[in-house]
Amino acid sequence: MDVHEARALFRELQERDGRVDPGELDAIWAVLPTARPEEILGAWKGGEFDTGHPLNGVLEKAGWYGKTFHSLRDAKPLICRNEAGELYSDTELGQGEASLWTVEFRGESTATMVYDGRPVFDHFKWVDDSTLLGIMNGKDVPPEGPYYYFYLERAPESGSGVRSRPGAGEGA
């Protein structure tokens, strides 16, 4: 599978009703370009892939909207909507907030969000200029998973002041 096929399959799986095979997501992950922490700063709207993981549906019930990366040391992993529709950082559910680092995962160094209050890592790779595929990993997750798979799409409120990755839209 090349990166163009991976992007097409990603979009197909994103639109699929029902379960998604984690093996298909792993195949996509394997060919996507890595991200650097400074490239993903800004606000992101999130969604998940239903792979049967125990977390599937939990974030939706909490009103999860997405993630915001203000700086490398100021990341908000659980931006949620309250009953009034206002966005806030749910530090109770996340047991704090997070920071961005470059961490090796599956033999590649890529942007990773490290949670402050949990032994949890969210690894990110680029699907396209405005979409990231994420894999949640942690201390108690065996090397073969199961992993929680999600995606982030750059939110409209990110504005034009947020840098996109260098070389975006060029070739790969």
Rank of each mutant, 00 (worst) to 15 (best):
L132S: 04
K139W: 01
G107F: 12
I135G: 07
L152Y: 04
T112D: 03
Y151Q: 06
P146M: 07
M136C: 08
A111K: 10
Y115N: 10
D140A: 11
K139T: 09
F124I: 08
F124D: 07
L133H: 04
A111E: 08
G145K: 08
G134V: 04
G134E: 05
G134H: 05
E144M: 01
Y148A: 05
E153S: 14
V114Q: 06
G107H: 11
Y115D: 03
G138P: 09
P119D: 09
S158Y: 08
T112E: 05
D122F: 01
E108Q: 15
A155Q: 00
F121T: 05
L133K: 03
P142F: 09
Y147F: 15
F121C: 11
F124K: 06
D129H: 10
G107R: 07
D122N: 13
Y147P: 04
T112I: 00
R118A: 06
M113N: 05
Y149V: 09
G145L: 06
L133R: 03
E157Y: 01
G117Q: 03
W126A: 07
N137G: 01
M113P: 04
S158C: 05
R106K: 15
D129E: 15
E157V: 12
V120K: 04
S109Y: 14
Y148R: 01
R106P: 05
K125M: 08
M113R: 02
G107Q: 09
K139P: 00
Y151T: 00
S158D: 01
V141S: 02
L133C: 05
D140V: 04
M136Y: 01
L133Q: 05
V120T: 14
F150Q: 01
G117T: 13
E153F: 00
G117E: 06
R118H: 00
F105E: 08
M136A: 13
E153N: 12
V127E: 07
A111I: 12
P142E: 09
